[in-house]
Design a binder for these strands. Structure first.
Lengths: 245, 245
DNA sequence: TTTTGAACTGTCACTACCGACAGTTACGTG
DNA sequence: CACGTAACTGTCGGTAGTGACAGTTCAAAA
């Protein structure tokens, strides 16, 4: 019951936003749970690869160097499963389902790291994805029981920490979206443009003149501070100014 | 300890993907926890309003009719906070922070509904947002304790259910994304187009001829099955085929 | 009542885009 | 070796997008 209490206390701290430093969060997690290591990764897809936005972990510089030098990110099934899905990913399950990733787990054992753990996918706005990987150092059957009892704690903690990271990082980009207020007509026209309609088609659809459609698009380009309809649509989709049709 | 066990069993059912029907999930939740009502909403922003993609709840047709007739969605702070944020939203907290939403809670009391509860934001891919609202029927102090113990359960259950909903809903659109594989050059060209560059500019940037840029864009349009560069960029941003610049 | 903002329209000249024609070069796989 | 795929290039003719000119109408806010 003491452990139970410690867990609840920790979650309360997180919910009150009292933990925005990754190092602080990792320390808190390792003190509260029987966790060996933690890794937080935020990335966005880029042409079959990944563009890493944020990366924090407790595996140490040596492990990171090994991982990078051997290009283990190319075979890491946990990255693919967690960043591409929405459910918790069990490390051993991933290991069995993807035999080609053995070098990854061999490398882990080589430097004395456990191969038991779970990775929690954390969807972010704007198509980005993040994950919190939790590495534990205990026998498989013990981990099975421990996981069953604490996955909910891991999930809530991960969500709250991820929220804190998002709130912190979003401050920079938030200002530029301020004057991105489009009128209803501008939004309509832009939406149809994103659907591949020409000015003439949009004019016909909305029952207005082609010139007026161009007028709205010009205003939209000016407001979004862009030089082409194409760029305007890219901005609009990214900032969710137009609906998914 | 019996309740504890029931909770863990329920979470296990959810994790194994054994619950994709909203009605089934709601029943399970109400049987496991002391929950009065549940609401699951998936929506995307649309010009200061919301476009509802999925909506399931247990409040009944009468409550829904009241909500719609009085246009309570316009003042509902829980919608705004949960769909716009990433942290759990406490109903009473929202009520105190937004005095203009009193009609909402008055309407709830009028038809005999409790005003205690919590809403869990559930970020989805592609800029969409979802929430699971949990409504309980207990005194404030009791709810405070209950919430403290079970928020983690709610969060994990919500995440797993949301995952099931996404996996189920994505089946339809998943096929079309299959052949959306762009080559590295196509991605590069499309990325610059999304940045508002003309063919001539992209050609200069990449050090190739303007004709070649057009060639890649034509291939891209064909692969994405669209009719203009503008539409191609909209698709690409939505499916995260190009990075956020 | 004046002012502001949104919605709306017309013409001109220029540039950008787009489809269809017809190719070359290089690399890896069966 | 043949085959497929990716990267690359040229020309022609038509359509679409873009900026700058100069307006009207209506409703709500100051």
């Amino acid at each position: 019951m003491t452990e139970q209490q410690a867990v609840l206390d920790m979650l309360e701290i997180l919910e009150c936003g009292g933990c925005v430093e990754p190092a602080h969060f990792f320390t808190l997690m390792r003190r509260t749970f029987r966790i060996a290591h933690l890794l937080y990764l935020e990335a966005e897809p880029y042409a079959d690869e990944l563009k890493v936005c944020r990366l924090h972990h407790t595996f140490g510089a040596y492990a990171a160097e090994i991982y990078r030098a051997r290009a283990l990110h190319r075979i890491d099934p946990i990255l693919k499963l967690a960043l591409g899905g929405v459910r918790p990913v069990e490390w051993t399950m991933a290991r069995h389902r993807f035999p080609e990733c053995e070098p990854l787990f061999e490398a882990a054992q080589e430097i004395g790291l456990s191969t038991e753990g779970v990775a929690l996918p954390l969807p972010s706005p704007a198509g980005r994805m993040a994950l919190l990987a939790i590495n534990v150092n205990m026998p498989a059957d013990e981990w099975s029981t421990y996981r069953r009892h604490h996955l909910r704690d891991f999930q809530l903690a991960a969500n709250l920490f991820h929220a804190a990271m998002l709130e912190h990082g979003a401050m920079a980009g938030a200002l530029s979206v301020r004057d991105m207020r489009l009128t209803s007509r501008e939004t309509e026209v832009l939406t149809w443009a994103a659907a591949g309609k020409s000015y003439w088609e949009i004019a016909t659809i909305l029952g207005i003149s082609e010139r007026t459609v161009r007028f709205f698009m010009t205003n939209t380009r000016r407001k979004l501070n862009v030089v082409s309809n194409t760029q305007a649509v890219a901005q609009a989709v990214r900032h969710a100014l137009i609906p998914t049709v």
